[in-house]
Design a protein around this nucleic acid. Structure first.
Lengths: 221, 221
DNA sequence: GATACCGATTTGGTATACCAAGATGGTATT
DNA sequence: AATACCATCTTGGTATACCAAATCGGTATC
């Protein structure tokens, strides 16, 4: 059986879905029996997830990466650099029709849409926006950053107004890109990322006791 | 024996040192016998080198990544985004004394220094400059970009004046950072990266027949 | 002579056996 | 009762055996 991809995918989903908590120890034998694969594909999956930053080595042994508030700040800086560069490339394109596809994706969310879907679309917005640039490295950087952020975003205590605000900011960014206004687009994007980071870090910092009570390792900023 | 790290390091060095040519096929069994390791550490090394972009899958099987001129252009854009962000962070620091360490590193090269060393120092300049920012993600991005560029830079037909020009540009960037002049530093850095890219792509494009004659796979822009 | 077909070999994917180092727990000694 | 020490178990690192698919040659047929 082609277990390798399955083990990697399922394990990633368990980690991102917080079914395995941040800071938890992983043993190859447990994964082996949990997914019915042997150690070889398990090792391959672990090596891949390590490069994604979702797990790390704890001396000997593997550990699910903790929630690291300092890291969240650094990722925001990284994101801003690459996302702004991607948007600048995109605004310089003649054909920016890809913007409409992303707008349609945003509009697929309404009041009936479950929170989980709002989150996913919110992340995909940034990934797809980077893809429009046509630069594989900027795209990969944004995708990696989003992967590392996704658990934290899922833990964030987010009210409806915050989701709506992000949605509006996403649309505003698209409007500026559509108009070819690079400066406005990057200004809006930078502000969006900074605001997003502030709300995320604040929310997790305020709730860090609750997170630790759930058995999640949280590293302070 | 701790073969895993050795296999990975030695194989990386063979690829970066062009002892294994771009486009060449790799078999796990060959690596196994070449380095006296078994397939498990070989697999680990291959998986890691794949994420570094030095090797890729060719259907079934592994292939050393070809020299890709279009990719070199994309990397330059990526580099500029992350290196400029790093330099902006660094100029905003109160303590920029790390700049002097990098300056000393540059000055360790003189007319007696072999070409190979000039190349290494030229790459380390960018890595160490990114490290000063204190942002792990920007540092990793620059290090990854440099790794992907290093084979191409080694193939570049470079005269002495080009090496000296890069050295002078590096010093000029450091001077701007030392003075805390972020705009000047980023302007110089952007120009340096763009010029470096142009010379690199032009050189490889002009010599692509020679490269192919050496058995190297070259993908056009 | 070209081509279609079939078997042998190669090769990556997987499973598993073995090993050494570290963790664990229990016992004996003080 | 506390602690030092030793046997045992766990666990990641490594080596190897087995499998299926793809590739490569060769032969036979048209």
């Amino acid at each position: 059986m082609s277990q390798m991809l399955n083990v990697e995918r399922q394990l990633r989903e368990m980690i991102l879905g917080l079914e395995i908590g941040p800071g938890e120890r992983l043993t190859e034998r447990w994964i082996e029996s949990r997914f019915g694969a042997s150690r070889t594909p398990v090792r391959a999956a672990l090596l891949r997830l390590e490069t994604e930053g979702l797990i790390g080595r704890d001396g000997r042994g593997w550990t699910v990466a903790p929630i690291n508030l300092a890291e969240l700040g650094q990722i925001a800086v990284y994101r801003e650099a690459v996302e702004v560069a991607a948007v600048r490339l995109t605004t310089a394109l003649e054909d920016r029709s890809g913007v409409e596809v992303i707008a349609a994706m945003l509009d697929s969310c309404d009041s009936e849409t479950p929170r989980e879907e709002w989150h996913r679309v919110g992340m995909d917005f940034h990934i797809e926006l980077a893809r429009l640039s046509g630069n594989e490295f900027l795209l990969r950087a944004v995708r990696d950053a989003m992967t590392r952020l996704s658990r934290a975003r899922w833990l964030e205590v987010r009210d409806e107004t915050a989701l709506g605000r992000a949605w509006a900011e996403h649309h505003a960014i698209l409007a500026a890109v559509r108009a070819g206004d690079a400066d406005e687009a990057t200004r809006l994007l930078s502000a969006h990322i900074a605001g997003s980071r502030d709300r995320l870090v604040t929310s997790l910092h305020d709730d860090r006791r609750g997170l630790r009570a759930r058995g999640f390792a949280v590293v302070a900023a």
